[in-house]
């Protein structure tokens, strides 16, 4: 390790007792090393605890909705992955699912339902997420399209016409 890196290691508390004695001896004699050490100290002091404060520019519901979707997608993928299972295990999940579905339908059919409400479908090439903000009484479907290929607002509405500039 060269002297400069040893100076830095001293500053960061990464030297043992012998190395500390050695580098302090150099510092006492060499003005340039002392000046460099001072510069490193200034920088360490300036940076520590002075990270810029950044806040997430999205609401709790909106941010969470994509995470929730990601978790669901990963779970689906994991379930679809082929695994070594006993032959009867292949049937137990569909059978349980079917039984649960029949049970749910049986219970639900006893009363009025809004079956099929609050669901959305999108074409395969469209990436959309949906969530509900209870506080604002809003059900939202958000189409993520970084390239902005769909422009319902129209460019002429947004831009200044030449005459206005």
């Amino acid at each position: 390790m060269n002297t400069e890196l040893k100076l830095q290691a001293l500053l960061d508390g990464a030297l043992d007792a012998r190395e500390i004695r050695e580098i302090e001896a150099i510092l006492a004699q060499d003005i340039q090393s002392a000046a460099l050490m001072q510069e490193l100290k200034w920088m360490k002091a300036a940076v520590a605890g002075n990270e810029a404060e950044v806040k997430l520019p999205e609401t709790r519901e909106f941010y969470w909705s994509k995470i929730e979707r990601g978790i669901a997608a990963e779970a689906k993928q994991a379930a679809a992955a082929p695994a070594e299972r006993a032959w009867w295990l292949r049937f137990i999940y569909p059978a349980t699912g079917l039984a649960a579905m029949v049970a749910v339908m049986f219970v639900v059919s006893g009363g009025r339902t809004t079956d099929g409400a609050d669901t959305e479908s999108v074409p395969e090439d469209v990436n959309a997420i949906s969530f509900r903000s209870e506080a604002e009484a809003m059900s939202v479907v958000y189409v993520a399209d970084e390239n902005g290929t769909f422009n319902p607002v129209g460019q002429e509405t947004k831009n200044e016409p030449e005459a206005d500039k």
Binding site: A137, M138, S139, Y142, V143, G148, F150, N151, Q155
Partner: peptide
């Protein structure tokens, strides 16, 4: 429900 339905998306 009293909810408004908001369809939204990224623009340019």
């Amino acid at each position: 429900k009293p909810d408004a339905l908001v369809l939204a998306g990224d623009d340019k």
